[in-house]
Design a protein around this nucleic acid. Sequence first.
DNA 1: ATTGGGAAAGAGAATCATTCTCAGTAAGGA
DNA 2: TCCTTACTGAGAATGATTCTCTTTCCCAAT
Lengths: 157, 157
Amino acid sequence: MPRGFGKGAMLWHGRFRKHGYRLTLPRQAILDVLSRTTKHLSAEEIYIEVHRIYPSIGLSTVYRTLELLVQVSLIFKFDFGDGKARYELIRSLEREYHYHHHLICTQCNRVIDYTEFIKDEMELFKKTEKNLSKKYGFKINRHIVQFYGVCDKCIRR
Amino acid sequence: MPRGFGKGAMLWHGRFRKHGYRLTLPRQAILDVLSRTTKHLSAEEIYIEVHRIYPSIGLSTVYRTLELLVQVSLIFKFDFGDGKARYELIRSLEREYHYHHHLICTQCNRVIDYTEFIKDEMELFKKTEKNLSKKYGFKINRHIVQFYGVCDKCIRR
DNA sequence: ATTGGGAAAGAGAATCATTCTCAGTAAGGA
DNA sequence: TCCTTACTGAGAATGATTCTCTTTCCCAAT
């Protein structure tokens, strides 16, 4: 197990092996970038970060890896409406699980994570999910909630 | 007011004028296509439909118009993760308001509108929206909820 | 009715995020 | 060590969307 990566590495490694994949250096580097931020990075932003430390890692690899990481449920992919996908590490196994949804400003594309008022919601969605699964025969894996609006800064213009 | 378009035309016309835009033939044609379906059409699918009746209407116009329609809140734009945007007429003023969310199959990209179990949700979101607005100074205009999973047909494979 | 000016449209080029191809490299098991 | 397969980097290709430019349309003032 290479050094210099956080404790997530063990988890990641296991997750990869379970799916028959290897946890290679580029993959660790990308996961590491994502684990060190709470921002919603695009593929290119991730590429730039990774590239600073490992200049040999190419953009294709970043895209390929991100797709893989979504597939093995280590990251989420989001669309906030600005034409590029955004990625977030899934932190559900961390000590302080930061369950959240997004508030998106349609003028400046700012994204705010909010965690408030979410307890009732989790309950409701658990119920809804069960009902929908039964009614439509779906195996539901996740849901997203996004609020769109105009942020305080943009309102004052 | 040109003939051959549904009763939405009056509403549409008013909405356009309010924003200083004109309700032209291509715009009506596009709204008309959207008003005749409950599917989630892509820009190109809309173009093909429109083009059957008005072959002179170009793809650029379709894109331009769709953007405009989103801006004046006559349609919603969605991303279901398959690389192209989808559009839906907003029917909130129709007799039978079909408020719904989406269930998306991540394997075959099938999208199901569901309207069940939504009453509790509307209440909850009204509250949440108010709270978030206050706390973050956002003027919230809309929210989306999407469930991702694997549909019955894809499970049996 | 005529006309002047801004809005809107059509065609095609340009853009840009993402995906694909291909040839080379690395890693783990026999 | 060898072999198979996963993985990679580079760059080309793709495809949805946006932009540019010229022409056309609509409306209001004359």
